[in-house]
Simulated scan of single mutants.
Amino acid sequence: MSLVVPEIRRSWIARVNPLAKLVVALCVGVTLVLSIDVVSAGIVVAVVVLLLPFAGLSARQLAVRTSPILVSAVLAGIATALYGVDAGRVFASLGPVTITEGSLGLAVAILLRVLAVGVPAVLLFATTDPTDLADSLAQLAKLPARFVLGALAALRLVGLLLEDWEALGLARRARGVADRHGIRRFLVQAGTLLVFAVRRGGKLATAMEARGFGGATRRSWARRSVLRPRDVLFMLVGVGVVAAAVTTAVLLGSWRWVL
Rank of each mutant, 00 (worst) to 15 (best):
residue 78 I to E: 00
residue 81 A to D: 08
residue 77 G to W: 09
residue 80 T to I: 11
residue 72 S to N: 02
residue 74 V to Y: 10
residue 71 V to A: 15
residue 89 R to V: 12
residue 83 Y to L: 09
residue 93 S to T: 10
residue 88 G to E: 05
residue 70 L to D: 09
residue 100 T to K: 00
residue 78 I to F: 04
residue 84 G to W: 05
residue 79 A to I: 01
residue 86 D to W: 10
residue 91 F to W: 12
residue 98 T to P: 00
residue 98 T to A: 02
residue 97 V to S: 07
residue 68 P to F: 09
residue 72 S to L: 10
residue 73 A to P: 13
residue 73 A to Y: 10
residue 84 G to Q: 02
residue 90 V to Q: 02
residue 71 V to L: 14
residue 98 T to R: 06
residue 101 E to P: 03
residue 91 F to K: 08
residue 68 P to A: 07
residue 67 S to K: 06
residue 92 A to G: 05
residue 71 V to G: 14
residue 70 L to M: 15
residue 75 L to N: 11
residue 101 E to S: 12
residue 88 G to K: 05
residue 94 L to P: 08
residue 78 I to H: 04
residue 69 I to C: 08
residue 90 V to N: 01
residue 100 T to D: 01
residue 95 G to D: 06
residue 76 A to W: 01
residue 98 T to I: 10
residue 72 S to R: 04
residue 76 A to G: 00
residue 75 L to D: 05
residue 71 V to K: 15
residue 80 T to V: 14
residue 97 V to M: 13
residue 74 V to P: 11
residue 89 R to E: 13
residue 97 V to Q: 06
residue 68 P to L: 05
residue 84 G to R: 05
residue 86 D to A: 12
residue 85 V to Q: 11
residue 91 F to L: 10
residue 76 A to D: 03
residue 84 G to E: 01
residue 72 S to P: 03
residue 73 A to D: 11
residue 77 G to I: 04
residue 68 P to M: 05
residue 67 S to V: 03
residue 83 Y to H: 11
residue 67 S to Y: 04
residue 83 Y to S: 08
residue 94 L to W: 15
residue 99 I to Q: 01
residue 92 A to Q: 01
residue 83 Y to F: 12
residue 97 V to G: 03
residue 82 L to R: 09
residue 83 Y to R: 07
residue 90 V to E: 04
residue 79 A to G: 04
residue 72 S to I: 06
residue 91 F to S: 11
residue 82 L to C: 14
residue 85 V to S: 12
residue 70 L to Y: 12
residue 85 V to N: 10
residue 83 Y to V: 05
residue 101 E to C: 11
residue 89 R to A: 14
residue 101 E to M: 09
residue 81 A to Y: 07
residue 86 D to S: 13
residue 69 I to Q: 03
residue 87 A to Q: 01
residue 78 I to W: 00
residue 97 V to P: 03
residue 91 F to Q: 08
residue 101 E to L: 04
residue 97 V to A: 14
residue 86 D to K: 10
residue 99 I to W: 06
residue 67 S to M: 09
residue 98 T to Q: 05
residue 99 I to K: 06
residue 73 A to E: 11
residue 74 V to L: 12
residue 84 G to T: 04
residue 95 G to W: 07
residue 84 G to M: 01
residue 92 A to R: 03
